[in-house]
Each structure stands twice: as C-alpha cells, then as structure tokens.
C-alpha cells in the first residue's frame, strides 16, 4: 500500500523541481524506475523522463518493486514507491513511512536540495 504520509515542500512549480527530486531519489535508489502517474507511461531510466510534461511521478527503487506494484498493491513492500506531485507552489511527496530509513534521509536530502539557494530556482518559494 501507499499513502501513509504526505510531505509538502514549498517549491516553484517548474520542471526542474521535479527533476531535482528525481535526481535526489536516485542517490538512494540508483536503479530507480519512473512512471507518469497520470498516464501510466513508464520510463526505464531517468534520462527518459520528460519533465516538461510530467506533473505527477511515481518512482520505484528497482524493476522488481515496479513489477510488484504492477501486479498487485498487496504484494508491494512498504516504502517501495514514492509518489511526487508537482503543483504551482509546492511538491508533495507521498510515501508509506517517512521515519524508516532510507526514506527519512531521502526526504531530508530532497528538502535541502530544493532550498539550496540561487543555483536552482526554488529558493524564493522556500
């Protein structure tokens, strides 16, 4: 299952926000798979994700987790997927358990990354 917790981080609603989140998730999940949550379109790797179009992104840690989710929610392990939702003023991260590792570290990393300052275009909203 998923949906235990929503983490809302203020950020600009621009493609680089979702891109930055995806890049940060890959620090923890290097074999990550991606899916457009609105269309179901799958992306085997980060380079394939069209961040200019995607506003809601599912990220799985690896192909096995993706397959488990594709077959049945009941087979999927906790924290085996992140759901990112980009809005005009924030990005929302939906996950099962934000306290368990590596999710806690991942959330800290994403939060800090989005507030990193002028290099990225997110700072004003933070």
């Amino acid at each position: 299952m998923i949906g235990g917790t929503d983490i809302v981080i203020p950020a600009k609603g621009v493609p680089e926000t979702l891109d930055a989140c995806a890049r940060m998730v890959r620090e923890y999940w290097p074999m990550a798979r991606f899916e457009n949550a609105l269309t179901g379109e799958k992306f085997r790797q980060y380079a394939d994700v069209p961040f200019g179009y995607v506003r809601e992104l599912l990220i799985y840690p690896d192909p096995e987790a993706e397959s488990a989710w594709d077959q049945s929610d009941a087979d999927a392990a906790p924290n085996s997927m992140l759901y990112l939702i980009l809005s005009s003023e924030s990005v929302t991260i939906v996950l099962d358990d934000p306290i368990a590792e590596p999710m806690q570290s991942m959330l800290h990393s994403i939060h800090d990354f989005l507030r990193a300052g002028k290099v990225n275009t997110f700072a004003e909203a933070a």
Partner: peptide
C-alpha cells in the same frame, strides 16, 4: 546542484 545524501556531500545535476 548542491546537496547532501545520507549526510554526505553530493553535487547533483546541472540546473538553469
């Protein structure tokens, strides 16, 4: 992009 991952330094990405 400047970040930390698991508390360790990480340059990540190239942003406009």
């Amino acid at each position: 992009g400047t970040a930390t991952a698991a508390g360790q330094p990480s340059f990540n990405g190239f942003f406009p």
